[in-house]
Design a protein around this nucleic acid. Structure first.
Lengths: 192, 192
DNA sequence: CCTACCGATCGGTAGG
DNA sequence: CCTACCGATCGGTAGG
């Protein structure tokens, strides 16, 4: 038995909540489920969070904070537009579909369960992520590698990629690498 | 006051439930909300449906039954592949985003809330819809107008189109016609 | 389809 | 973070 610092209990709640929210949805998970899975009593999550929705927001924010650095590095790299886009898609698929990556799926599934206030708070981080995509898509566009207006293009592209969360089954059919390749091939066309 | 046949009360429950589920989500809507909006007492929806989830399944099935004929007509038409795909996308956007079309968004939002039994039941209709898309996508592929394997291609394409339900705002930005055009332009490339 | 009601669940809190 | 508990809600049912 390792000695676990008290500060980690909060993070543990967030991590367990992410898993349960991802599996059963926000409304399909009770704060009691979370408490039990973490080894607490039913009321104890509320020592760490003001409300169930605050836990949800924390899950989403942790997912975004964890995913942003990789995406930022890719966006700031000197890769040519098509390769950069491919790397971004690949990194995003990992965040959405990778083993133990339950945070962003929760954001995609249960965004609407956030109160307006919490939604606005999480949106700040989300905007940064969306902007990175927009930048990379704009580079594609500027290089003549993408038809369609870039604002709607970004939404359609992110839709295609995010929607994988609803159909992808690990170890069945294409793997993440293949899906990334197919998506890029279909959207961007063959080479520059 | 028109005289309303008793049989229409059930349909009324489904229609009202579709609107409320679409606005607030399945878990965010109580059977009491539905009853009140339809002008019944709180227990009366259960005269028409065995459970709340049966109402949800009915909403989804009505959406699919309403949408299938148009999609079938398009798939069976003699349009060239690109035009056929464009027509399918356009029809689908109408079903997903059109005014008063709350049924398919509910399917997209709350598919996971169905019990396994009900999910299997609704899946039968959903499979028919997916197959139509697959046929049209395969035609595109056969005509050399689409890169990427067609099974994954269909999922990515439907993802892009279905995801519009999360960002489209009527009367703000592109309209359905424009979105359809941009989607086709981006995915299929310029002309055959 | 209404009346009347239940049984259980659930988010959240006071007080330590 | 636990104990003990509340207040409200909610899906669903019996019986007519």
């Amino acid at each position: 038995m390792a000695i676990v610092p008290v500060e980690n209990r909060r993070a543990e709640v967030v991590r367990v909540a992410a898993r349960l929210f991802c599996e059963r949805g926000f409304d399909g998970t009770t704060t009691r489920d979370i408490a039990e899975a973490v080894g607490m009593r039913s009321g104890s999550p509320f020592y760490h969070f003001k409300s169930k929705q605050e836990i949800l927001a924390a899950v989403m924010e942790e997912g975004l904070v964890a995913g942003l650095p990789a995406a930022e590095t890719i966006a700031a790299s000197v890769l040519p537009p098509r390769a950069k886009f491919r790397a971004l898609v690949r990194a995003h698929l990992e965040i959405v579909l990778g083993e133990g990556h339950d945070f962003i799926p929760v954001l995609l599934y249960d965004w609407r369960r956030l109160t307006p206030e919490l939604r606005a708070r999480v949106q700040v981080l989300r905007d940064r992520y969306d902007q990175l995509w927009q930048d990379v898509v704009n580079e594609l566009s500027a290089a003549g590698l993408l038809k369609s207006d870039s604002a709607v293009a970004r939404l359609l592209l992110m839709g295609a990629v995010n929607y994988t969360v609803l159909w992808y089954k690990p170890g069945q059919g294409s793997d993440l690498e293949q899906i990334a390749e197919e998506a890029v091939a279909m959207f961007v066309g063959p080479e520059a």
